[in-house]
C-alpha cells in the first residue's frame, strides 16, 4: 500500500523517557517508513546520538538515513536580557521519503514521496 503514516508524539509522552529510549523510539518508527512529529526538541547530546545511531542502523539497501527538521520560536530570558531559539516541533522522517522542504522562520512545508514508502523496511 502506498500510504504515509505520521506519528505525533506529545512532550508529555517523552518526559520520562531516557535519551536512548527517545532515540530508539524515533529510529524504529522511521525505519518502518513513518514520519515522527514530536512536540519539543532534542538536546545537543540527543541530536548527536541520533546521528550516530542512524549511521549504525543504515543498511544501504533499505534504510539510508533520516531527515530532521525543526520549527523554533524566540524565547526571552527571565529578566528579558537575552533571546534564544527554542524548538517547538521536531520532524524526523526517512531520508528517501522526505523530498522537498521549504522553511521560513515560522513555516515549514514538506513533500513526502509516498511511492517510496513501500521500499522502506517494515
Amino acid at each position: 500500500m502506498n500510504g504515509l503514516k505520521m506519528d505525533f508524539i506529545s512532550s508529555e509522552a517523552l518526559e520520562n523517557a531516557s535519551s536512548m529510549e527517545k532515540i530508539y523510539m524515533i529510529i524504529e518508527r522511521v525505519k518502518k517508513g513513518n514520519i515522527v512529529v514530536m512536540e519539543g526538541g532534542l538536546t545537543n547530546y540527543e541530536r548527536t546520538e541520533l546521528i550516530e545511531t542512524t549511521m549504525r542502523e543504515i543498511d544501504i539497501e533499505n534504510f539510508v538515513g533520516i531527515d530532521v527538521h525543526t520549527l523554533e520560536k524566540d524565547t526571552t530570558s527571565f529578566l528579558g536580557f537575552s533571546k534564544k531559539k527554542t524548538v517547538v516541533i521536531t520532524i524526523v522522517g526517512p531520508a528517501n521519503l522526505m523530498k522537498t522542504v521549504k522553511k521560513q522562520s515560522n513555516f515549514l512545508s514538506m513533500v513526502a514521496d509516498i511511492t517510496k514508502s513501500d521500499e522502506v523496511i517494515s
Binding site: 549511521m55 530532521v68 531520508a95
Partner: peptide
Amino acid sequence: GISTKVDY
C-alpha cells in the same frame, strides 16, 4: 563530512 543520511 557529517550527514544524517548516506545513500549509495
